[in-house]
């Protein structure tokens, strides 16, 4: 897989966010520039959206 397919823009600050392994939908990444928590919503091409905020019933 080429480097180009492993990087996509942060939806918050537009900085490039790189994934270190093959992406899967729902995977979480962090933008190193603005610290936004991102979720992979598409893998070809890679698309990020802001990850949902923690909800009351989330946990282990």
């Amino acid at each position: 897989m080429t480097q180009a397919t492993m990087t996509a823009a942060c939806p918050e600050c537009d900085a490039p966010v790189e994934l270190t392994r093959h992406p899967l939908n729902g995977q979480i990444a962090n933008c190193t520039q603005c610290s936004a928590e991102l979720e992979v919503t598409n893998t070809a091409p890679i698309t990020f959206e802001l990850a949902p905020e923690v909800e009351e019933d989330w946990g282990e």
């Binding site: 899967l24 939908n25 729902g26 995977q27 979480i28 979720e39 992979v40 990850a51």
Partner: peptide, 27 residues
Amino acid sequence: TYTRLRTEERMLLDAFENIGVDATPVD
């Protein structure tokens, strides 16, 4: 089944793959 693929879920998928089990992530 998952809502977020965190480190744990990726580890589990890798573990299933390592032991040769077909495991499908379902959002």
